[in-house]
Protein backbone atom coordinates (compact mmCIF):
# COMPACT_ATOMS: atom_id res chain seq x y z
CA UNK A 1 0.00 0.00 0.00
CA UNK A 2 1.20 3.54 -0.76
CA UNK A 3 2.27 5.95 1.98
CA UNK A 4 -0.35 8.60 2.45
CA UNK A 5 1.80 10.56 4.88
CA UNK A 6 5.56 10.52 5.31
CA UNK A 7 7.78 12.38 7.73
CA UNK A 8 11.53 12.41 7.19
CA UNK A 9 14.08 13.39 9.83
CA UNK A 10 11.86 15.90 11.60
CA UNK A 11 13.59 18.05 14.21
CA UNK A 12 11.68 20.77 16.02
CA UNK A 13 12.66 23.08 18.84
CA UNK A 14 10.29 25.60 20.43
CA UNK A 15 11.76 29.10 20.11
CA UNK A 16 14.75 27.38 18.49
CA UNK A 17 15.82 26.29 21.96
CA UNK A 18 13.50 23.83 23.70
CA UNK A 19 13.67 20.41 21.99
CA UNK A 20 10.32 18.86 21.08
CA UNK A 21 11.25 16.37 18.35
CA UNK A 22 14.64 15.00 17.42
CA UNK A 23 15.17 13.39 14.02
CA UNK A 24 11.78 11.68 13.86
CA UNK A 25 10.91 9.70 10.74
CA UNK A 26 7.77 7.70 10.11
CA UNK A 27 5.38 6.84 7.36
CA UNK A 28 1.68 6.06 7.40
CA UNK A 29 -0.12 3.95 4.86
CA UNK A 30 -3.56 4.71 3.49
CA UNK A 31 -6.26 3.28 5.75
CA UNK A 32 -3.81 2.49 8.53
CA UNK A 33 -4.39 2.98 12.26
CA UNK A 34 -1.33 4.46 13.91
CA UNK A 35 -0.82 5.52 17.51
CA UNK A 36 1.95 7.82 18.67
CA UNK A 37 2.51 7.15 22.34
CA UNK A 38 4.83 8.63 24.92
CA UNK A 39 4.85 10.35 28.26
CA UNK A 40 3.79 13.97 28.81
CA UNK A 41 6.02 16.44 26.99
CA UNK A 42 7.66 13.89 24.69
CA UNK A 43 6.42 15.73 21.57
CA UNK A 44 3.25 13.86 20.53
CA UNK A 45 1.12 16.97 20.04
CA UNK A 46 4.01 18.77 18.33
CA UNK A 47 4.31 15.86 15.91
CA UNK A 48 0.59 16.11 15.08
CA UNK A 49 0.90 19.87 14.63
CA UNK A 50 3.73 19.27 12.16
CA UNK A 51 1.75 16.57 10.33
CA UNK A 52 -1.11 19.07 10.02
CA UNK A 53 1.30 21.80 8.83
CA UNK A 54 0.32 24.13 11.64
CA UNK A 55 3.98 24.52 12.55
CA UNK A 56 7.01 23.77 10.41
CA UNK A 57 10.13 21.89 11.53
CA UNK A 58 13.60 23.41 11.66
CA UNK A 59 14.76 20.44 9.61
CA UNK A 60 13.09 17.51 7.90
CA UNK A 61 10.27 17.09 5.40
CA UNK A 62 6.56 16.25 5.47
CA UNK A 63 4.93 14.61 2.45
CA UNK A 64 1.21 14.16 1.93
CA UNK A 65 0.41 11.78 -0.92
CA UNK A 66 3.92 12.35 -2.19
CA UNK A 67 3.62 16.14 -2.22
CA UNK A 68 5.89 18.03 0.12
CA UNK A 69 4.08 20.37 2.53
CA UNK A 70 6.21 23.44 3.10
CA UNK A 71 5.37 26.81 4.59
CA UNK A 72 5.66 28.36 1.14
CA UNK A 73 3.38 25.82 -0.53
CA UNK A 74 0.79 26.22 2.25
CA UNK A 75 0.34 29.80 1.01
CA UNK A 76 -0.87 28.54 -2.38
CA UNK A 77 -4.65 28.39 -2.43
CA UNK A 78 -4.84 25.18 -4.44
CA UNK A 79 -2.38 23.38 -2.17
CA UNK A 80 -4.11 24.56 1.02
CA UNK A 81 -7.36 23.23 -0.38
CA UNK A 82 -5.71 19.91 -1.28
CA UNK A 83 -4.03 19.63 2.12
CA UNK A 84 -6.86 20.70 4.45
CA UNK A 85 -9.45 18.63 2.62
CA UNK A 86 -7.41 15.50 3.19
CA UNK A 87 -6.49 16.02 6.81
CA UNK A 88 -8.68 16.67 9.84
CA UNK A 89 -7.29 17.46 13.27
CA UNK A 90 -9.06 16.91 16.58
CA UNK A 91 -7.30 19.10 19.12
CA UNK A 92 -6.62 17.99 22.67
CA UNK A 93 -8.53 20.99 24.02
CA UNK A 94 -11.81 21.25 22.09
CA UNK A 95 -12.24 24.87 23.20
CA UNK A 96 -9.55 26.00 20.78
CA UNK A 97 -11.31 24.25 17.93
CA UNK A 98 -14.79 25.63 18.49
CA UNK A 99 -15.09 29.26 17.49
CA UNK A 100 -18.42 29.66 15.69
CA UNK A 101 -21.67 31.01 17.21
CA UNK A 102 -23.51 27.67 17.46
CA UNK A 103 -22.86 23.94 17.09
CA UNK A 104 -24.57 23.97 13.69
CA UNK A 105 -22.34 26.82 12.45
CA UNK A 106 -19.36 24.99 13.89
CA UNK A 107 -20.07 21.90 11.82
CA UNK A 108 -20.78 23.99 8.72
CA UNK A 109 -17.56 25.99 8.95
CA UNK A 110 -15.22 23.39 7.43
CA UNK A 111 -17.36 22.39 4.41
CA UNK A 112 -18.09 26.04 3.61
CA UNK A 113 -14.37 26.92 3.67
CA UNK A 114 -13.75 23.99 1.32
CA UNK A 115 -16.09 25.65 -1.15
CA UNK A 116 -19.11 23.36 -0.82
CA UNK A 117 -22.50 24.97 -1.40
CA UNK A 118 -24.79 25.77 1.50
CA UNK A 119 -27.10 22.85 0.56
CA UNK A 120 -24.28 20.31 0.24
CA UNK A 121 -22.72 21.50 3.49
CA UNK A 122 -26.04 21.38 5.36
CA UNK A 123 -26.74 17.84 4.14
CA UNK A 124 -23.33 16.73 5.31
CA UNK A 125 -23.78 18.41 8.69
CA UNK A 126 -27.17 16.80 9.28
CA UNK A 127 -25.71 13.39 8.46
CA UNK A 128 -22.81 13.84 10.90
CA UNK A 129 -25.13 15.18 13.61
CA UNK A 130 -27.29 12.08 13.30
CA UNK A 131 -24.23 9.83 13.33
CA UNK A 132 -22.84 11.43 16.49
CA UNK A 133 -26.30 11.72 18.08
CA UNK A 134 -26.08 15.43 18.69
CA UNK A 135 -29.15 16.85 16.96
CA UNK A 136 -30.27 18.23 20.33
CA UNK A 137 -27.13 20.39 20.51
CA UNK A 138 -27.72 22.05 17.12
CA UNK A 139 -28.47 25.60 18.31
CA UNK A 140 -26.30 25.60 21.42
CA UNK A 141 -23.21 27.81 21.66
CA UNK A 142 -20.06 25.77 22.31
CA UNK A 143 -19.41 27.32 25.73
CA UNK A 144 -22.74 25.92 26.97
CA UNK A 145 -21.64 22.32 26.34
CA UNK A 146 -20.15 19.77 28.71
CA UNK A 147 -16.60 18.48 28.17
CA UNK A 148 -17.80 15.30 26.43
CA UNK A 149 -20.25 17.22 24.23
CA UNK A 150 -17.52 19.67 23.23
CA UNK A 151 -15.30 16.78 22.21
CA UNK A 152 -18.12 15.25 20.17
CA UNK A 153 -18.82 18.56 18.43
CA UNK A 154 -15.10 19.07 17.73
CA UNK A 155 -14.95 15.59 16.21
CA UNK A 156 -18.10 16.31 14.20
CA UNK A 157 -16.53 19.54 12.94
CA UNK A 158 -13.60 17.50 11.63
CA UNK A 159 -15.77 14.76 10.14
CA UNK A 160 -17.93 17.19 8.15
CA UNK A 161 -14.80 17.97 6.13
CA UNK A 162 -14.68 14.25 5.25
CA UNK A 163 -10.89 14.02 5.50
CA UNK A 164 -8.89 10.96 4.46
CA UNK A 165 -6.60 11.29 7.47
CA UNK A 166 -7.82 11.92 11.00
CA UNK A 167 -5.30 13.28 13.48
CA UNK A 168 -6.65 12.78 16.99
CA UNK A 169 -4.78 14.33 19.88
CA UNK A 170 -5.61 12.56 23.17
CA UNK A 171 -9.16 11.83 21.97
CA UNK A 172 -10.21 10.03 25.15
CA UNK A 173 -9.17 12.80 27.53
CA UNK A 174 -11.95 14.00 29.82
CA UNK A 175 -14.58 11.61 28.47
CA UNK A 176 -16.91 9.61 30.69
CA UNK A 177 -16.93 5.81 30.13
CA UNK A 178 -19.94 5.84 27.80
CA UNK A 179 -18.59 8.67 25.63
CA UNK A 180 -15.22 6.95 25.61
CA UNK A 181 -16.61 3.65 24.32
CA UNK A 182 -18.69 5.55 21.73
CA UNK A 183 -15.50 7.24 20.58
CA UNK A 184 -13.66 3.94 20.25
CA UNK A 185 -16.58 2.43 18.29
CA UNK A 186 -16.59 5.47 16.03
CA UNK A 187 -12.84 5.23 15.43
CA UNK A 188 -13.22 1.55 14.51
CA UNK A 189 -16.12 2.38 12.16
CA UNK A 190 -14.12 5.17 10.51
CA UNK A 191 -11.16 2.89 10.09
CA UNK A 192 -13.40 0.26 8.49
CA UNK A 193 -14.69 2.98 6.16
CA UNK A 194 -11.12 3.41 4.90
CA UNK A 195 -10.01 6.46 6.87
CA UNK A 196 -6.42 6.73 8.03
CA UNK A 197 -6.37 7.30 11.77
CA UNK A 198 -3.42 8.75 13.65
CA UNK A 199 -3.84 9.02 17.41
CA UNK A 200 -1.50 10.72 19.87
CA UNK A 201 -2.09 9.33 23.32
CA UNK A 202 -0.60 8.01 26.50
CA UNK A 203 -3.69 5.88 27.04
CA UNK A 204 -2.44 2.31 26.56
CA UNK A 205 -5.94 0.83 26.70
CA UNK A 206 -6.89 2.85 23.61
CA UNK A 207 -4.08 1.42 21.50
CA UNK A 208 -5.04 -2.04 22.70
CA UNK A 209 -8.64 -1.49 21.65
CA UNK A 210 -7.69 -0.03 18.29
CA UNK A 211 -5.17 -2.77 17.58
CA UNK A 212 -3.01 -0.30 15.73
CA UNK A 213 0.62 0.09 14.79
CA UNK A 214 2.40 2.02 17.51
CA UNK A 215 5.23 4.54 17.41
CA UNK A 216 6.79 5.07 20.84
CA UNK A 217 8.39 8.45 21.49
CA UNK A 218 11.01 8.61 24.21
CA UNK A 219 11.48 11.38 26.75
CA UNK A 220 14.45 12.40 24.58
CA UNK A 221 11.91 13.19 21.80
CA UNK A 222 13.10 10.40 19.50
CA UNK A 223 11.33 7.37 18.06
CA UNK A 224 12.17 4.67 20.58
CA UNK A 225 10.41 1.78 18.89
CA UNK A 226 7.76 1.00 16.29
CA UNK A 227 5.64 -2.15 16.45
CA UNK A 228 2.21 -3.68 16.74
CA UNK A 229 0.00 -2.84 19.74
CA UNK A 230 0.50 -6.32 21.25
CA UNK A 231 4.25 -6.10 20.81
CA UNK A 232 4.51 -2.69 22.45
CA UNK A 233 2.08 -3.42 25.29
CA UNK A 234 3.96 -6.65 26.01
CA UNK A 235 7.29 -4.86 26.32
CA UNK A 236 7.20 -3.76 29.97
CA UNK A 237 10.86 -2.81 30.00
CA UNK A 238 10.29 -0.38 27.09
CA UNK A 239 7.17 1.09 28.68
CA UNK A 240 9.03 1.61 31.96
CA UNK A 241 11.89 3.28 30.10
CA UNK A 242 9.63 5.74 28.27
CA UNK A 243 7.68 6.46 31.45
CA UNK A 244 4.35 4.99 30.36
CA UNK A 245 4.19 2.57 33.26
CA UNK A 246 5.78 2.90 36.68
CA UNK A 247 6.61 1.09 39.91
CA UNK A 248 3.65 1.24 42.22
CA UNK A 249 3.22 0.40 45.90
CA UNK A 250 -0.14 -0.14 47.56
CA UNK A 251 -1.91 -2.14 50.25
CA UNK A 252 -4.17 -5.17 49.97
CA UNK A 253 -5.44 -5.45 53.54
CA UNK A 254 -2.25 -5.61 55.59
CA UNK A 255 -0.08 -6.75 52.63
CA UNK A 256 2.07 -4.25 50.77
CA UNK A 257 2.33 -4.78 47.06
CA UNK A 258 4.99 -3.48 44.70
CA UNK A 259 4.52 -3.90 40.96
CA UNK A 260 4.62 -2.12 37.63
CA UNK A 261 1.43 -0.26 36.93
CA UNK A 262 -0.34 1.83 34.33
CA UNK A 263 -3.48 3.72 35.16
CA UNK A 264 -4.99 2.65 31.88
CA UNK A 265 -4.15 -0.92 31.10
CA UNK A 266 -1.83 -2.58 33.53
CA UNK A 267 -2.72 -3.52 36.97
CA UNK A 268 -1.10 -6.88 36.51
CA UNK A 269 0.79 -8.41 39.33
CA UNK A 270 1.19 -11.67 41.16
CA UNK A 271 -0.03 -10.99 44.66
CA UNK A 272 1.85 -13.90 46.24
CA UNK A 273 5.18 -13.09 44.61
CA UNK A 274 5.13 -9.36 45.12
CA UNK A 275 3.79 -9.36 48.67
CA UNK A 276 5.83 -7.70 51.40
CA UNK A 277 4.26 -8.43 54.76
Amino acid sequence: MADILRLENITYRYHNMIPALDNVSLSVQRGERLAVIGSNGCGKSTLLHIMNALIFPQSGEVYLEGQQATEKRLKEKAFVHFFRQRMGYLFQDPDVQLFCPTVFDELLFGPLQLGLTQEESTARVLEIMAMLQMENLKDRPSYMLSGGEKKRVALGAVLTMNPDILLLDEPGNGLDPRSYSLLVELMVALSEAGKTIIVATHDLSLIGELGCRVVVLSEQHRVEKTGSAEEIIGDEELLLRVNLIHEHVHYHGSSVHRHVHSHYLFHRHNHKESCEE
Binding site: V80, M87, Y89, V96, L112, Q113
Partner: peptide, 15 residues
Protein backbone atom coordinates in the same frame (compact mmCIF):
# COMPACT_ATOMS: atom_id res chain seq x y z
CA UNK B 1 -4.19 26.84 14.52
CA UNK B 2 -7.66 25.32 14.93
CA UNK B 3 -9.04 27.68 12.28
CA UNK B 4 -6.20 26.93 9.87
CA UNK B 5 -6.66 23.19 10.26
CA UNK B 6 -10.31 23.59 9.32
CA UNK B 7 -9.60 25.36 6.08
CA UNK B 8 -9.38 29.03 7.14
CA UNK B 9 -7.35 30.97 4.60
CA UNK B 10 -8.12 34.53 5.62
CA UNK B 11 -11.54 34.65 4.00
CA UNK B 12 -14.44 33.35 6.08
CA UNK B 13 -17.62 31.84 4.72
CA UNK B 14 -20.35 31.52 7.30
CA UNK B 15 -23.87 30.11 7.13
Amino acid sequence: GGMLSRGFTGEVRLT
